[in-house]
């Protein structure tokens, strides 16, 4: 039983790290702000939940578990809100998404 739990938690942690890594690669490689915020925002929530769930599985019952749940709730609340606020603020300030088709045609 314990072995199974630790294996599951390991899988969760590794999946979380993979998502985190893919998110940041998206943030670096994507062409404009809105695609970047998409890469960051989408992976962030799932990755954070996966890593925290992986930690919860090895934590066992107790106040540590409670704190982890609190952190998870907080992340689930705040990070989509922050992404939303960022996107909205960027849009209001007049930042337009890059038109990729246009840009490729310009290059060619």
């Amino acid at each position: 039983m314990e072995l199974i739990v630790s294996i599951i938690s390991g899988v969760c942690l590794l999946a979380g790290s993979f998502l985190v890594l893919s998110g940041v690669i998206g943030v670096i490689r994507f062409p404009d702000f809105y695609t970047r915020i998409h890469a960051a925002g989408v992976t962030e929530t799932l990755a954070a939940s996966l890593i925290l769930i992986g930690l919860m599985l090895i934590a066992g019952w107790g106040i540590v578990l409670l704190k982890l749940i609190l952190i998870l709730l907080l992340v689930l609340f705040t990070s989509p809100t922050a992404s939303h606020a960022l996107g909205k603020a960027a849009w209001k300030s007049g930042l337009k998404p890059t038109n990729l088709k246009q840009r490729n045609e310009d290059r060619n």
Partner: peptide
């Protein structure tokens, strides 16, 4: 009214 979502979330937080 621009920041309805933010205000609700901060109210909860």
């Amino acid at each position: 009214d621009e920041h309805k979502i933010l205000r609700i979330v901060s109210k909860i937080l």
